[in-house]
Design a protein around this nucleic acid. Sequence first.
DNA 1: TAATCTAGTGTAATCGATTACAAAATAAAA
DNA 2: TTTTATTTTGTAATCGATTACACTAGATTA
Lengths: 338, 338
Amino acid sequence: MVRISDVAKMANVSTATVSRVLSNSGNVKKETAEKVLEAIKKLNYQPNLLARQLRRLETKTVLVVVPDITNTFFSKILRGIEQVAIENDYEVLLGDTGNSLEREKGYLDILRQKKADGMILLTARLESHLLEEISHEFPVVLACEYLEGSDIPTVSIDNISSARKATEYLISLGHKRIGFLSGPMDVILSRDRLKGFKQGMMQHDIAIEPNLIQEGDFSFESGFNLMTKLLALTEPPTAVFASSDEMAIGAIKAIKAKGLKVPDDISIVGFDDIKFASIFEPALTTVSQPMFEIGQKAMELLIKLIQKDKLEKSQYILEDQLVIRETCKEKKKDMIKM
Amino acid sequence: MVRISDVAKMANVSTATVSRVLSNSGNVKKETAEKVLEAIKKLNYQPNLLARQLRRLETKTVLVVVPDITNTFFSKILRGIEQVAIENDYEVLLGDTGNSLEREKGYLDILRQKKADGMILLTARLESHLLEEISHEFPVVLACEYLEGSDIPTVSIDNISSARKATEYLISLGHKRIGFLSGPMDVILSRDRLKGFKQGMMQHDIAIEPNLIQEGDFSFESGFNLMTKLLALTEPPTAVFASSDEMAIGAIKAIKAKGLKVPDDISIVGFDDIKFASIFEPALTTVSQPMFEIGQKAMELLIKLIQKDKLEKSQYILEDQLVIRETCKEKKKDMIKM
DNA sequence: TAATCTAGTGTAATCGATTACAAAATAAAA
DNA sequence: TTTTATTTTGTAATCGATTACACTAGATTA
């Protein structure tokens, strides 16, 4: 392995001078610098980052903890993170928890062991005091999620208001029996979406029926299963608002499996606007999150934290948008009951 | 920050002893070890990995270079990699190239700078001599891709034979005018799939028509566009074999857009078996790759390389499988021409 | 009893860079 | 020409762990 001392020897200078050439800092005579650069090229020298990092006590690496890397929602955010990371010479250490709480916890140690300068969490199911604690010691940014009553910097959309908007859209189409497929209740964003749903309903004086609200886990499979349950009710909903696109698609499959049609028989709204939402048939009406931008912003904030810059605020709310495609329709006229 | 010397001081021992307790190596008296452990707990000490890594000249980190992290095909492989990584106390440094050759090249430096102990490439579009070079210096494993005439360890399916199988399946359904949507020709796996397609055709004495073969880039969009082109031919194909599921789905969308039906008018076979292949309607008949296993195996090989173990062989071929779903059907009887 | 071995611990070198400080060389000012 | 300022370079400490080597004390063997 080629070390800085090898370069120094070949160029007939001290390691300090080589280092100065490397970092472009300080005063090095032109000719000396040229000698050094030549030696570097000749030896194909690459500085050992471990040594540099140890000396500088920084890694130029950020840890990104993702609940499920195979979900395109998260990988799109990751893309945004990575873009800003590259622009600022940071590397991304990936922590996929596979929805395991234990693994989520385990990744905190990587930060403590200085393997990364900071951390972006796309999931926050850990006990909040753990997160609070580590965020006091190290730079931490939450994306999508946030922590109630905490001042950990956060980038997300306003889940409550976007869920309310989506609900009101269904109401505006004449729907009153609206089902709600929720995400897991231990994540705040699920609770927010539910809250938004309830707000929308109440604002139009529509009673909320508990058995039209079902808790799932954002997955396709849970969407399918919960919708099947809803369809088994004596009076199934005429519209359903799902807390993720995957669930929405699962729900549509369940509806189709019963021989019913979307949107003719039942309207569906999803959440996220993953790539597949527009490819699926019928194309999904959904709340579109600016995933790439969320990632970018989160990484920008993290870099600021690492550099100990002051943030203007700790909660950044990005704009979402209700994208209307093909899965919603005016409620059918009630049949005259016999 | 708590250092090993702080622990040593508190426990009234030398740093060497603390280190020995930490690594569970060597001979430390029980009582001493207990004292040390107590101090560690009291101070909430976590060893600085940078220092350890510098001393040991290893990072316990592997670099995974992915062409597109938002493609579930790759993220599934990544899952396999990460699983084995965790089991062996490795971390995964993610390098998403966004299909950029330049960024692919840039990630090689991370390896040279010792930020990772080895590298798994899920893309190999770089000039082969670059790859050869770096693989002589550092542990490198190719997954999915391989390099002709190179001995870089590789994990993949046999693309030629699986493409041949899929082609023969279409032929067995009576199709003769079979279109082929290829991936980019600068990746070997695209060329292999084309080769397999041609083999299948020739083995059944079916002439290969150049304008039924179209080159894309694995993406949904290219599938749509190329299929649109094929449909514009005076005599369009009755079946199409796409080199990726995304392309296949794009092709189906194009067919539907023309008012035709899959599989009634045109049969489609995809490649990869991404999650969405079974959700899409009609559910995709496709060549299923064992993505998770590819990732696992690749990581296992890489660990062996890092530990300087001998590999039994350098090319590992895993089993693929033609999954028959709903997008293929017997060719319609020819209309009697007037 | 003396010699040898072993367990347990400490001292200090080491990994490969960066950088504070000192020193030398050169330029500018008196 | 001497003095002072500036530029350029080198020496050695440093980052925080690991580990080769040395040492001590007690156990074992001859």
